[in-house]
Simulated scan of single mutants.
Amino acid sequence: MSKSAPITLPEKLPRHVAIVMDGNRRWARKRYLPRLEGHRQGVKSVRRSIEASLDFGIETLTLYTFSAENWKRPKDEVSALMNLLALHLKREMDDLHERGVRFRALGRLDELPTNVREYVQQLEEKTAGNTRLNFNIALNYGGRQEIVDAAKAMSKQVLEGHLKWDDIGPEHLACHLTTHDQPDPDLMIRTGGDHRISNFLLWQMAYTELIFLPIYWPEFNRDHFLQALHEYAERERRFGAAG
């Protein structure tokens, strides 16, 4: 990764930034390139986002990598995506560890190909003790599915007598989410031009600030990230209270 240029950061920074990485296929189509080339170029934006998060002092970065709905895409594209993912999980393992990045995958991982699951497990174990940046990828992830899984886990606790029905509150459900030990996202950035959150961290983003950029994910760089941070810093976060 290249040497970082001087930056001017706002005084108020988000602890947790979530990004919907949208527009890989449209970026490729606009250039008359194969769909997979868009995803390959998108990997470069992932690297830039990690490096920027480290430089900017972001505590947690979560990238929406593959949704539970993405299985509906053409089989050859899904297969190529999984192979690309496995390749880069393996390739980036040592670099992430050396940079003090802790890696975690969020989602129903048991439904993923064996090689992807193995690299995810290896990377999680290798970086478990790192504290400089929490780097999450949402993989075979859906916000509704996550809430359903949490509700099932609470129901099991009630049936087994470990939790009383009348005592259940928001904090109990939050404890069963994959981000249970991390702060909720303060800022969500979405590239690609669409204005929706697409089943991403539904519970966690109840009060998240949303920024939508009219660029494709392969175009996302350090300056776009910094621009979003400055826009975030100008917003007043009231969490339902009066200003």
Score class of each variant (00 low, 15 high):
13 L>A: 04
14 P>D: 01
14 P>H: 01
15 R>G: 03
15 R>H: 10
15 R>I: 00
16 H>L: 06
16 H>K: 02
17 V>T: 01
18 A>L: 10
18 A>D: 09
20 V>H: 00
20 V>T: 03
21 M>N: 09
21 M>C: 10
21 M>E: 05
21 M>V: 09
22 D>E: 06
22 D>H: 04
22 D>N: 02
23 G>Y: 03
23 G>S: 00
23 G>L: 08
24 N>Q: 05
24 N>R: 10
24 N>K: 06
24 N>P: 09
25 R>F: 03
25 R>T: 09
25 R>A: 08
25 R>W: 05
25 R>I: 05
26 R>F: 10
26 R>T: 03
27 W>K: 07
27 W>E: 06
28 A>H: 01
28 A>P: 00
29 R>K: 11
29 R>L: 10
29 R>G: 02
30 K>G: 10
31 R>A: 09
32 Y>A: 14
32 Y>W: 14
33 L>P: 01
33 L>H: 07
34 P>M: 00
34 P>A: 10
34 P>D: 03
34 P>Q: 06
35 R>G: 10
35 R>L: 15
35 R>A: 14
36 L>M: 15
36 L>A: 04
36 L>Y: 04
37 E>K: 12
37 E>H: 09
38 G>T: 11
38 G>W: 04
38 G>K: 04
38 G>D: 03
39 H>P: 11
39 H>D: 11
39 H>I: 11
39 H>M: 09
40 R>T: 10
40 R>W: 12
41 Q>T: 15
42 G>W: 01
43 V>P: 08
43 V>E: 11
43 V>W: 15
43 V>Y: 14
44 K>V: 12
44 K>M: 13
44 K>F: 12
44 K>C: 11
44 K>S: 14
44 K>N: 13
45 S>L: 02
45 S>I: 08
45 S>W: 06
45 S>H: 12
46 V>L: 12
46 V>K: 05
46 V>N: 08
47 R>L: 13
47 R>Y: 12
48 R>Y: 13
48 R>G: 12
49 S>V: 05
49 S>C: 12
50 I>T: 03
50 I>V: 13
50 I>Y: 01
51 E>F: 15
51 E>P: 13
51 E>K: 11
52 A>M: 13
52 A>D: 13
52 A>L: 12
53 S>K: 07
53 S>M: 04
53 S>D: 08
53 S>W: 10
54 L>S: 03
54 L>R: 04
54 L>W: 09
55 D>V: 14
55 D>M: 13
56 F>G: 04
56 F>Y: 14
56 F>L: 06
57 G>I: 04
57 G>L: 01
57 G>A: 10
58 I>M: 00
58 I>E: 01
59 E>G: 04
59 E>M: 07
59 E>S: 08
59 E>V: 07
59 E>D: 06
59 E>T: 07
59 E>Y: 05
60 T>M: 02
60 T>L: 04
60 T>C: 08
60 T>W: 00
61 L>I: 00
61 L>D: 03
61 L>P: 00
61 L>E: 02
61 L>W: 00
